[in-house]
Design a protein around this nucleic acid. Sequence first.
RNA 1: UGGGGCGUCGACAAACGGCAAGUCAGGAGAUUUUGGAUCUCCCAUGUGGAGGUUCGAAUCCUCCCGCCCCAGCCA
Length: 561
Amino acid sequence: MEEKEKPVDFIREIIREDLKNKKYDSRVHTRFPPEPNGYLHIGHAKSICLNFGIAEEFKGLCNLRFDDTNPTKEEVEYVEAIKKDVKWLGFDWQDREYYASDYFEKLYEYAVELIKKGKAYVCDLTADEIREYRGTLTAPGKDSPYRNRPVEENLDLFERMRKGEFSDGLRTLRAKIDMKSGNINMRDPVMYRILHAGHHMTGNKWCIYPIYDYAHCISDSIEGITHSICTLEFEDHRPLYDWFLDKLGVYHPRQIEFARLNLSHTVLSKRKLIQLVQEGHVKGWDDPRMPTISGLRRRGYTPKAIRNFCERIGIAKRENMVDMSLLEYCIREDLNKKAPRVMAVLRPLRVVIINYPEDQAEELEAINNPEDPLMGTRKVPFSRVLYVEKDDFRENPPKDFFRLAPGREVRLRYAYYITCVDVIKDRTTGEITELHCTYDPATRGGDSPDRRKVKATLHWVSAPNSIEAEIRLYDHLLTVPDPSEGKEGKDFKAYINPKSLETLTSCHVEPGLRHAAVGNRYQFERQGYFCVDSDSIEGKPVFNRTATLKDTWAKIEKKLI
RNA sequence: UGGGGCGUCGACAAACGGCAAGUCAGGAGAUUUUGGAUCUCCCAUGUGGAGGUUCGAAUCCUCCCGCCCCAGCCA
C-alpha cells in the first residue's frame, strides 16, 4: 500500500470503521432500492455506483430491490427498464432481485406483533382529520381518539382491514409514538393504508399496503443489509427507521444519507421528467436530450463514462449542482480513446477542384484513430467534386480565422492542399453555392515537399461517393443552469431550450458508414462524437451527436462579437 | 416560533489541531495533418461572519448569519 491513499467519502469511511470493529460480522451488504414508477436517471446512477461500488470494493453484496409498496403508481414496464439500465451500467445483482412485496406477509405479521406490544393501533380518522391532528411545524399534534383502542379491538380491526371489509381510506394502521415530537415523522405515522388496487407482483392478494417507512427498514432487516444508503431527505425518517426495528427487536442495519445529484441545464426529478415525456417536450424516456440512463445510452454515452462521472463528483452531504461540462468531459475522455475517426460534412458546400481531371478518382489512406495505431487505416475516395463544411469558408475572414477564404490555401485532411480561386454565388439570392479551387498534386496525403505551412486542415467528403445522412444535434435541455433560481412563479418549463434539437437532413458522410450498426460510435473529425440512432434505415443512417469536440475557434469567434 | 441537515475556488471536492489536495470550467504558452488530443504554467495569503482556546484553527468552543429538507393514507 502506498502512503498516500486516495481520499474516500464519509460513507466508505464509516464502513471501514465498522469493518475494523467487526460490526455486522464483518459483512458489507448494500442495496439499490428503486421504486418502479419511472425510468432511472443519472442521479440514480450516482446511487447505483455508490451501492454496487461499495459492495465490490469491500467484497460484499448489493441487492436490487424494487420498493413496490404503492400499487397505484407502479408498473412492470418500469421494473424491466430499471433492470436493463442497471445491467447496462455494468452491475450485477446475481440472483438477489427482490421486491418489497416479497415481504408483505412478514410485514403483516410484524404489524400484528407491534399491535400486541401496544405500539400500533387502528385509526378511524380520515386523511383530512389525520392532517389536522398532526399539528404543524411549530405546533404539536394531538392524540387520535382511537389511539388507546384495546389491543384485541386493534387486532380484530386490522385483520378485517386485510380481509377487505372496509373501503379505501376508511381506516389506517398507525404507529403509536409521540404526537408532540418535534419530528413530524414521529407523530404516529401511518403504517398501512387500505387500497383496493391490483399490484404488479401480488395481484389482488392484498387490499392493504404498507407505507415506505414501515416497509423499508424491515426489508433491509430481512435482507441482512448492513448499510442502508439513501438521500438526504430521509434524514428525518431515520428515527422512525430505528424505532420500528428497535420495537420489533430485529436485526438492525444502519441508515446513512448523502446528497442527491443535481446537474446543471437539466432536471433530475421523476416528477419533472415524467412531465417532459407526457407533455411531449421530448419524444420519450429515451430521448437523447433526457438525463435518463436510457436517454444517455441512446445519445451515445458509454457506461464507463457515466461511472467515471459518478466517481469524479464524489459523495458528500452538501447540496450540489454539478456542471454539465463535467459529464461531457467524461464522455469525450472515453470516446477519444475508443471512437474511430471518420469524415462527415454536416452543412455541405460544394467545392470543384478545377485542375483535377474530370475522369480521375483515387483512394487516399486515412488513420482510424491517431490515439490508437492498432485501429489501423482505411481508404477514402477523392474526386474532382467535394463537399466541405459551410463554416469552413469565409468570403471576408475575420482576424484569426485561418480556414478557407478567397486566395487562401488550406489542407484537406489526408488529401491535398487546395487554394480557393473563385466564389460562385446564386445570382438572385447572393448565396454562395460553390467554390472553385485548385489543388497541388505534390501534396498528396497532406504533406508538401517544400514544407510550406498551411494553418488549417479541413474535413471533406467526395461528392459522388458520399452517402446522405440525417444528423441530430443536441444542446442543453434547459437554457439556464438552475431553473430553481429563476424568477418567482416561473417553473422549469419556462426554461426549456427551444434549440435543444436541431435536425440536419442533407449531411454527407464517408461511404464506409453506409452499413454502420445502430449504437456504433464515431468521431466525426473536427465536429464531435456521434452514434448511430435506432431510427436509421438501410442506406440512410441517422446519427445523434453525443458531444461536441472542444472548439477553440468557437471561443475566439464568440469574443470577436 | 418546532425538528433535522449543510456552508472550503465559477462548479464538484479533499483536509480529521501542524504549510488550503485533486478534478471540471476559465486563462496563457508549447506542440499538432482534427482550432481535437497531449504537455507546461496560472487560477482560495484563505475556508459564511464575529469572538475565544492554542505555540499553531477550515478543523475545538461560543454567538451570529445564510441555504436546504419535513406538516402524503408518496417514495
